[in-house]
Design a protein around this nucleic acid. Structure first.
Lengths: 207, 207
DNA sequence: GTCTATACACCGATAGAC
DNA sequence: GTCTATCGGTGTATAGAC
């Protein structure tokens, strides 16, 4: 009896090639900047002719789109995993969330530009690629809600604060710690403003 | 006696043409984005052939350079003029400075991108064009110093805070007020943290 | 100083053979 | 699915006539 193969080798090979293309695109982005990704250069790196890429992606923007979706999925997974270990205590939890986002964003400029900045003039993520981004935002919001941060104005203040630190770090001290070191202080300011309960003294023996 | 003309009409005409070019470049930047400025399009708008622009600027980046220098000079003048009317009282003065910068930055996205963001891949301002930017920074710093803000970490916190609000406003609510409305609150937080004296009650009759 | 003509190096995308 | 060949377009910049 001739059944269907239980592994679709063809589909696997196809997916592997798509990944090769995306990986090469990230390589170029990291070396020469996000806007320097070209079909020619991708093709050269993976040993193809440029037109062959159209067998796997409908256009150059479709490649950006796949990159966008993937990094947001990555962030989603990393955030969900990390948030399980965040402290339960509100201030510690807020600081952990801010620090996690800061470190993730700052560790890869081009990724940050694709995820959070409108750098590519005529690229708009498809609805499908945007879905993980929304999912991510919901996870972050649920963490903040759990701390007691509900009002939109408070969320806006939080995003401006953390985003501002990230941008200054990337723009003025890439690879350094100048604004990273300000994260606890900035989060503390916000926590005071929001009236979060003061952090309990750490590892005090029971009295 | 044949003297030198007291007005150099030729030089004046030349300067006027340079200005025409720069103005056209800003027009394009505002309509289609900073990176969409091309020599072809500039030439078309002022009724020239593209190569003719090289009689006035050595390269496309030289045009960006002139734009960069000019907007920073404009900001310098505006800031110096406005700061004369800032309140003397520290908290009011800090808020006035932050508000002034916020409004200036937010009122023109492309100008902000040229002044404060590294958007143009292979454009680095010349030393001459950068000079007004430094002068500006010194004016801002002197205002902050006058309030009692000296430490680098405090200045860094200020720039991150205000810059963060600006970026969120431009990215997520262009033309709106969502983050503009948070400026007083954010500045208040920072003022508290720095221990600035509390603002006196406004327009209290003398007692 | 402005023009015409052109060089040169790219780019994304398509057609059609194999 | 990959190739070759090519199209039609972008862009900056230079040479030389006027």
């Amino acid at each position: 009896m001739v059944g269907l193969p239980n592994r679709d080798r063809k589909a696997e090979r196809r997916e592997a090639t798509r990944q090769e293309i995306i990986t090469a695109a990230w390589e170029i982005a990291h070396e020469n900047g996000l806007t320097s990704v070209t079909l020619r250069e991708i093709a050269t790196r993976i040993g193809m002719q440029p037109p062959s890429l159209y067998s796997h992606f409908a256009s150059k923007n479709a490649i950006y789109d796949a990159m966008f979706g993937q990094v947001w999925r990555d962030f989603c997974v990393a955030l969900e995993r990390a948030s399980a270990s965040f402290p339960a205590e509100p201030r510690g939890r807020l600081l952990a969330l801010a620090g996690f986002y800061f470190d993730f964003a700052v560790s890869d400029l081009e990724r940050h530009q694709l995820m959070d900045m409108p750098m590519l003039r005529d690229f708009r993520p498809s609805e499908e690629a945007y879905r993980p981004a929304i999912e991510c935002y919901e996870i972050m919001r649920s963490v903040l809600t759990g701390i007691g941060i509900h009002r939109q104005a408070d969320l806006d203040m939080y995003t401006a604060l953390v985003g501002g630190l990230v941008n200054q770090q990337l723009a003025n001290d890439p690879g350094g710690d100048r604004w990273r070191d300000l994260v606890p202080r900035a989060v503390g300011l916000l926590a005071d403003d929001l009236g979060l309960p003061a952090q309990p003294p750490t590892s005090r023996r029971k009295t």
